[in-house]
Design a protein around this nucleic acid. Structure first.
Lengths: 382, 382
DNA sequence: TACGGTTCCTAAACCGGTTCACTAAACCGG
DNA sequence: CCGGTTTAGTGAACCGGTTTAGGAACCGTA
């Protein structure tokens, strides 16, 4: 009943293909909104309303349309919707490292957890943006997101300009050198300083620093990587305060992973460096250093004290439990999303915010006084 | 020179807005293809060609168009491109768990690493699909991907139908109960059996199984979770082969995390269960069980042997190094992507493939013979 | 009877690209 | 100088939705 004049739209409109009335022999398997409209004898608009603002239709019509849509197996095409609404309901997490590197880094896992939780709650999907076939620019160009949380991206990355050019809201994490974007950092310097002071107070003077290598520097140099710089500054400040300083050859760098820390320690050892303590810039590296030390016959903390950074979940569970600098990683992710959404809500009018979260030293069992016997390769104070 | 008749298209075409010739006072900040076309004095088609098939234009025109585009800061809108090309160059990773759960699980990290590597190489972006505001269906509906790698999704999940309805190619990981989709599993049963046989050979009879709880069962029951079932079958087969069996109260379940394993062991202990060995269905849980055991004053492996499953990177680094069942997690991710792309390349014509990867037992130091004294709460053989 | 106000629905424009079908001009061999 | 092929570029249709502006039908009222 109520079957309206079955003109089926577009009466005389040129040639539309012969198979119009012999059922749904369309090239595409998926029915489109026009198919539903035709089948239900209404306009495309009505179908759209049935899904998005049913109150604009009579209850009867709305349910009938939805029934037809159901039997046809119709699902609105999300890409088309994105195009008209000019938003994708997707947030991007931008990292200059390859995805594979990200996932092998427990720090990122925690950070992503924070981001994911916040994004999920707010109904946003998550899209990881990282170099595609070696090109971060390509990945950015392809990505369809409403906003970007960029982590570990400093001012020198050209992609920053690309994103601004695209008019995308962006929040920087672990970098605040672009004042026009909101940012969130932790107090790396204070945390690092506390870590170094802890070792100095225990009596250590011969300390090896294991830094996270910069994105460019594939080996050796700590690099410009903002985070590493800030932490190094903290370490140095503590040493300066007791009238000594870190020897240049006592700073090595490696990948931010267990293996990276392990091989960095071995490398230093191979160069004859015999520290009584290690300051590692990430927990993963600290764990690696402990492993390497154990393999060299050193006991932690009796022969060697080790301090990490980050306080990942695992830090309390390794043997011995790791002394480390806690930073609220999950919170950092969640806050980044909140800042981003604030920026997205009020394009332009919103003044960028710059958050700095506190760090604090967690003393566990991987640190103790230096061994009695003088350190072998002394560069320390007498 | 060569400046063609500057009719600038659409001569008399109704009203287009007064601000047409007074510069780019468009509502949208981003220039569109039409802006470039107008500015360069060519058609939209030409601009499109300049980017996608420059060989169809004279070299001069192509470069000129690109220069204009550059000064205007034009970037093709990726969403519009997706719509016309009907592909997004994005792969989805579908999981029934929340993203936050995913990232806290080292198994997923490794798997994602494998997926990410393969996807990146092939020029695909990665999109994680997991419940949005509690609804996986919503996330699937929203997602714009060319294909899906589904992990831990079994036949009973209604989303499977949803994806098939959308006509999306899909590969199942850790589940092969949908023959019409390609799948990739590991030989869980054989691996589990090897683990149990190892303990039995050492003389253990009183063994606690710590299972991964099913998605539904929030506590207690191992649940229908295919993987858990298969591993349990393996354990049981080994016990049956020596003429004994696993007591029902010796099977507990928990979340697949360190804490999950820890609390599962404590729960069993609280119920008076005093096993000489533990079979954990994931390394994270095994590590948690070791921690709980240590807190209860048990030494591993002297008082308690522990076997894990997965062989995550960490397994060899904990104390004591964990005996576990190795499965090629990264490879699983990479292979899943390969299968998916095969299916995407040859829609329909491609017969689904079903891969089964081998597992193998890695004996480290967390297992040894049971303690001399008879186990306190004996359900074992005399 | 004319009028204003609802209710329910539609045609057409639009989002921002790509692509199909076609043409004007240049080129080319005979 | 002719017919055929290339070359370089165009206009319009199209991808699959949403949205704007408005129309027909019906109601109650003056």
């Amino acid at each position: 009943m109520a079957s309206p004049p079955v003109a089926a739209g577009l009466s005389g409109a040129t040639v539309l293909g012969p198979s119009l009335e012999e059922g749904m022999e369309r090239r595409s398997l998926r029915p489109r909104i026009a198919d539903v409209a035709r089948e239900a004898g209404v306009s495309k608009t009505a179908v759209s309303f049935a899904f998005n603002s049913p109150e604009r239709l009579s209850a009867d019509t709305a349910t009938r349309i939805r029934e037809v849509a159901d039997t046809l197996g119709y699902r609105p095409n999300p890409v088309a919707r994105m195009l008209t609404q000019r938003q994708t309901m997707t947030l991007g997490v931008l990292t200059p490292q390859a995805l594979a590197v990200i996932f092998s880094n427990p720090f990122f896992a925690l950070f992503s957890e924070g981001v994911a939780n916040a994004a999920e709650d707010l109904g946003y999907e998550l899209h990881f943006i990282s170099p595609l076939q070696g090109s971060l620019a390509l990945a950015v160009e392809r990505s369809t997101v409403d906003g970007v949380v960029a982590i570990g991206l400093s001012a020198e990355h050209p992609e920053v300009g690309q994103i601004r050019g695209a008019g995308l809201p962006m929040v920087l994490v672990d970098s605040d050198d672009l004042p026009e974007h909101s940012s969130i950092v932790v107090d790396d310097e204070a945390g690092a300083r506390a870590a170094a002071e802890h070792l100095l107070a225990l009596g250590h003077r011969d300390v090896l620093v294991i830094a996270v290598e910069g994105p460019a520097a594939a080996s050796g140099e700590p690099g410009r990587h903002g985070v590493s710089e800030r932490r190094l500054r903290g370490y140095r400040a503590a040493f300066a305060a007791v009238g000594t300083r870190l020897a240049k050859d006592h700073i090595v760098a490696g990948r931010a992973s267990i293996d990276g820390g392990s091989s960095a320690f071995q490398r230093a050892w191979g160069q004859g460096i015999r520290p009584t303590a290690v300051l590692a810039m990430s927990d993963a590296m600290a764990i690696g250093a402990m492993r390497a030390a154990r393999e060299l016959g050193l006991r932690v903390p009796d022969d060697l004290s080790v301090v990490g950074f980050d306080d990942i979940d695992l830090a309390g569970h390794v043997d011995p439990p790791l002394t480390t600098v806690h930073q609220p990683i999950r919170k950092k992710g969640a806050d980044a999303v909140r800042l981003l959404l604030a920026e997205m809500d009020q394009r332009g009018t919103h003044r960028p915010e710059h958050l700095r979260l506190a760090t604090r030293l967690i003393v566990r069992d991987s640190t103790g006084p230096p061994p009695r016997r003088a350190s072998q390769a002394g560069s320390g104070a007498p």
